[in-house]
């Protein structure tokens, strides 16, 4: 086994500690003055300011609806099948014809469509698998809940018109 010797001989200046300490203290003092007098900081004031995420960011899911507020989902189970985290649970049923006033054929419909956001790994496979562009992922990254039960979102919470991915906080408002 090859070994790499990373030890080095320290010079007297390095061994004396004090010069190195002084250099370090000079740097922190510079940063202190920058922060204290000039209010320079690299962080943002989060809830008021937000960073712009990439357009490809995969946040909380939503299910797109058509102009009649009917979900585009036809309960084909492709997303549930491909989901590696097994966090999507669909119960399918037959759709009434009256619900299709525009003549769009949607024979099946999801009776319930639950996503366990705590299990979800946000891989985006469901979005890729969906033949109807029904399940989409939004840019919303604020999914904190106060209990595990609240993290399981149902169909009513998921449904929203598809106005593009980046309406933050639109996906899960109650």
């Amino acid at each position: 086994m090859a070994t790499i010797n990373v030890s080095k001989k320290y010079t007297a200046r390095e061994k004396a500690y004090i010069p190195a300490i002084l250099i370090g203290m000079k740097i922190t003092m510079k940063r202190f003055i920058q922060g204290f007098l000039f209010r320079k900081h690299d962080t943002i004031m989060y809830p008021e300011q937000r960073r712009k995420y990439s357009d490809r960011f995969r946040g909380a899911h939503f299910i797109s609806v058509d102009s009649n507020k009917t979900e585009n989902c036809t309960a084909c189970f492709l997303c549930e099948t491909i989901c590696p985290a097994e966090c999507i649970h669909i119960v399918a049923d037959e759709r009434e014809d009256e619900q299709n006033p525009y003549g769009v054929k949607k024979e099946k419909k999801p009776v319930s469509f639950d996503i366990d956001l705590l299990r979800c790994c946000f891989c985006g496979f469901c979005e890729e698998a969906c033949p109807k562009d029904a399940i989409k992922m939004s840019g919303n990254y604020e999914m904190a809940t106060s209990s595990r039960e609240e993290a399981i979102v149902d169909l009513d919470q998921l449904k929203r018109p598809m106005n593009g991915r980046h309406e933050l906080n639109e996906g899960k408002k109650k």
Binding site: R31, Q34, G35, F36, H41, D42, T43
Partner: peptide
């Protein structure tokens, strides 16, 4: 606050 200023935080 001092720690934050030295570390470029608020």
């Amino acid at each position: 606050r001092g720690a934050a200023w030295m570390q470029g935080r608020v």
